[in-house]
Deep mutational scan, measured.
Amino acid sequence: SGVNQQQLQQLMDMGFTREHAMEALLNTSTMEQATEYLLTHP
Rank of each mutant, 00 (worst) to 15 (best):
Ser1Asn: 14
Ser1Met: 13
Ser1Thr: 13
Ser1Phe: 05
Ser1Arg: 07
Ser1Glu: 13
Ser1Gln: 14
Ser1Gly: 14
Ser1Leu: 13
Gly2Thr: 13
Gly2Phe: 12
Gly2Asp: 11
Gly2Glu: 12
Gly2Gln: 14
Gly2Trp: 13
Gly2Lys: 10
Gly2Val: 13
Gly2Cys: 07
Gly2Arg: 06
Gly2Met: 14
Gly2Leu: 13
Val3His: 07
Val3Trp: 11
Val3Ser: 06
Val3Ile: 13
Val3Phe: 11
Val3Leu: 10
Val3Tyr: 10
Val3Gln: 07
Asn4Arg: 08
Asn4Gln: 11
Asn4Trp: 10
Asn4Tyr: 09
Asn4Asp: 13
Asn4Gly: 07
Asn4Phe: 13
Asn4Ile: 09
Asn4Ala: 08
Gln5Ile: 14
Gln5Thr: 12
Gln5Ser: 12
Gln5Met: 14
Gln5Tyr: 12
Gln5Gly: 10
Gln5Phe: 13
Gln5Asp: 11
Gln5Leu: 14
Gln6Gly: 11
Gln6Pro: 07
Gln6Thr: 12
Gln6Met: 12
Gln6Asn: 12
Gln6Tyr: 11
Gln6Lys: 11
Gln7Asn: 14
Gln7Ile: 09
Gln7Trp: 15
Gln7Leu: 10
Gln7Ser: 10
Gln7Phe: 15
Gln7Thr: 07
Gln7Pro: 04
Gln7Ala: 10
Gln7Cys: 03
Gln7Asp: 13
Leu8Ile: 07
Leu8Trp: 04
Leu8Gln: 03
Leu8Val: 07
Leu8Tyr: 03
Leu8Asn: 00
Leu8Ser: 01
Gln9Asn: 11
Gln9Pro: 01
Gln9Trp: 09
Gln9Gly: 08
Gln9Ile: 10
Gln10Lys: 10
Gln10Glu: 09
Gln10Thr: 14
Gln10Asn: 06
Gln10Asp: 08
Gln10His: 10
Leu11Tyr: 02
Leu11Asp: 00
Leu11Phe: 05
Leu11Ala: 01
Leu11His: 01
Leu11Cys: 01
Leu11Met: 04
Leu11Val: 03
Leu11Trp: 01
Met12Asp: 01
Met12His: 03
Met12Arg: 03
Met12Lys: 02
Met12Gln: 07
Met12Ser: 03
Met12Leu: 08
Met12Asn: 02
Met12Tyr: 03
Met12Trp: 02
Met12Ala: 04
Met12Val: 14
Asp13Gln: 12
Asp13Glu: 12
Asp13Tyr: 06
Asp13His: 09
Asp13Gly: 11
Asp13Leu: 10
Asp13Trp: 07
Asp13Ser: 12
Asp13Pro: 00
Asp13Lys: 07
Asp13Thr: 08
Asp13Met: 10
Met14Ala: 06
Met14Asp: 04
Met14Leu: 12
Met14Tyr: 07
Met14Gly: 04
Met14Phe: 06
Met14Glu: 04
Met14His: 05
Met14Ser: 05
Met14Pro: 00
Met14Thr: 04
Met14Trp: 08
Gly15Ser: 03
Gly15Thr: 01
Gly15Met: 03
Gly15Leu: 03
Gly15Phe: 02
Gly15Asn: 04
Gly15Pro: 00
Gly15Asp: 03
Gly15Tyr: 01
Phe16Tyr: 13
Phe16Cys: 03
Phe16Thr: 04
Phe16Ile: 04
Phe16Leu: 02
Phe16Lys: 01
Phe16Met: 03
Phe16Trp: 09
Phe16Arg: 01
Phe16Asp: 01
Thr17Leu: 14
Thr17Pro: 15
Thr17Lys: 15
Thr17Ala: 15
Thr17Glu: 13
Thr17Asn: 15
Thr17Ile: 12
Thr17Met: 12
Arg18Ala: 11
Arg18Gly: 05
Arg18Pro: 06
Arg18Tyr: 10
Arg18Leu: 10
Arg18His: 09
Arg18Asp: 04
Arg18Glu: 10
Arg18Trp: 09
Arg18Ile: 10
Glu19Lys: 08
Glu19Tyr: 10
Glu19Trp: 12
Glu19Phe: 09
Glu19Asn: 10
Glu19Ser: 09
Glu19Ala: 11
Glu19Met: 07
His20Gln: 12
His20Thr: 08
His20Leu: 15
His20Phe: 13
His20Cys: 10
His20Met: 15
His20Ile: 14
Ala21Ile: 08
Ala21Lys: 00
Ala21Pro: 00
Ala21Val: 15
Ala21Asp: 00
Ala21Phe: 01
Ala21Thr: 04
Ala21Trp: 01
Ala21Leu: 02
Ala21Tyr: 00
Met22Pro: 00
Met22Leu: 13
Met22Arg: 07
Met22Asp: 02
Met22His: 08
Glu23Phe: 11
Glu23Pro: 01
Glu23Gly: 05
Glu23Asp: 08
Glu23His: 11
Glu23Thr: 11
Glu23Leu: 10
Ala24Trp: 01
Ala24His: 01
Ala24Ser: 03
Ala24Pro: 00
Ala24Phe: 01
Ala24Leu: 01
Ala24Asn: 00
Ala24Val: 02
Ala24Ile: 01
Leu25Met: 06
Leu25Ser: 01
Leu25Tyr: 03
Leu25Gln: 02
Leu25Ala: 02
Leu25Asp: 00
Leu25Gly: 00
Leu25Val: 04
Leu25Arg: 00
Leu25Asn: 00
Leu26Gln: 11
Leu26Pro: 00
Leu26Ile: 11
Leu26Val: 09
Leu26Ala: 11
Leu26Met: 13
Leu26Glu: 09
Leu26Trp: 07
Leu26His: 08
Leu26Asp: 05
Leu26Ser: 07
Leu26Tyr: 07
Leu26Asn: 08
Asn27Gln: 09
Asn27Tyr: 08
Asn27Trp: 06
Asn27Arg: 09
Asn27Thr: 06
Asn27Ser: 09
Asn27Gly: 05
Asn27Met: 13
Asn27Asp: 03
Asn27Lys: 11
Asn27Ala: 13
Thr28Tyr: 06
Thr28Gly: 03
Thr28His: 06
Thr28Asp: 01
Thr28Ala: 05
Thr28Pro: 01
Thr28Phe: 08
Thr28Arg: 02
Ser29Thr: 14
Ser29Ile: 07
Ser29Trp: 06
Ser29Ala: 13
Ser29Glu: 15
Ser29Asp: 14
Ser29Lys: 10
Thr30Pro: 01
Thr30Lys: 02
Thr30Phe: 02
Thr30Glu: 03
Thr30Ser: 13
Thr30Ala: 03
Thr30Ile: 02
Thr30Gln: 02
Thr30Asp: 08
Thr30Met: 02
Thr30Arg: 01
Met31Cys: 02
Met31His: 04
Met31Asn: 02
Met31Ser: 02
Met31Ala: 03
Met31Thr: 04
Met31Lys: 03
Met31Arg: 02
Met31Glu: 02
Met31Gly: 02
Met31Phe: 15
Met31Val: 10
Glu32Ala: 12
Glu32Asn: 05
Glu32Ser: 06
Glu32Phe: 04
Glu32Met: 05
Glu32Lys: 07
Glu32Val: 05
Gln33His: 05
Gln33Ala: 13
Gln33Ser: 06
Gln33Gly: 08
Gln33Arg: 04
Gln33Thr: 04
Gln33Asp: 14
Gln33Ile: 02
Gln33Leu: 06
Gln33Val: 02
Gln33Glu: 15
Gln33Asn: 04
Ala34Leu: 04
Ala34Asp: 02
Ala34Met: 02
Ala34Gln: 01
Ala34Ser: 01
Ala34Arg: 00
Ala34Gly: 01
Ala34Lys: 00
Ala34Glu: 02
Ala34Tyr: 02
Ala34Thr: 02
Ala34His: 01
Ala34Pro: 00
Thr35Gln: 15
Thr35Ile: 15
Thr35Tyr: 15
Thr35Arg: 15
Thr35Val: 15
Thr35Glu: 14
Thr35Asp: 03
Thr35Met: 15
Thr35Asn: 05
Glu36Tyr: 06
Glu36Phe: 05
Glu36Pro: 04
Glu36Gln: 09
Glu36His: 07
Glu36Ile: 07
Glu36Gly: 03
Glu36Cys: 06
Tyr37Val: 08
Tyr37Thr: 05
Tyr37Asp: 05
Tyr37Asn: 05
Tyr37Ser: 06
Tyr37Lys: 04
Tyr37Ile: 08
Tyr37Met: 07
Leu38Pro: 07
Leu38Val: 04
Leu38Asp: 03
Leu38Lys: 01
Leu38Ile: 06
Leu38Gly: 02
Leu38Trp: 05
Leu39Asn: 15
Leu39Lys: 15
Leu39Ala: 15
Leu39Thr: 14
Leu39Phe: 14
Leu39Pro: 08
Leu39Gly: 12
Leu39Arg: 10
Leu39Asp: 12
Thr40Ile: 07
Thr40Leu: 12
Thr40Ala: 14
Thr40His: 11
Thr40Ser: 14
Thr40Glu: 10
Thr40Val: 07
Thr40Met: 12
Thr40Tyr: 09
His41Cys: 04
His41Phe: 12
His41Trp: 14
His41Arg: 05
His41Met: 15
His41Thr: 11
His41Ala: 08
His41Glu: 10
His41Asn: 09
His41Gly: 13
His41Leu: 14
His41Val: 08
His41Lys: 07
His41Pro: 06
Pro42Lys: 15
Pro42Ala: 15
Pro42Leu: 15
Pro42Gln: 15
Pro42Tyr: 15
Pro42Asn: 15
Pro42His: 15
Pro42Asp: 12
Pro42Trp: 15
Pro42Arg: 11
Pro42Cys: 10
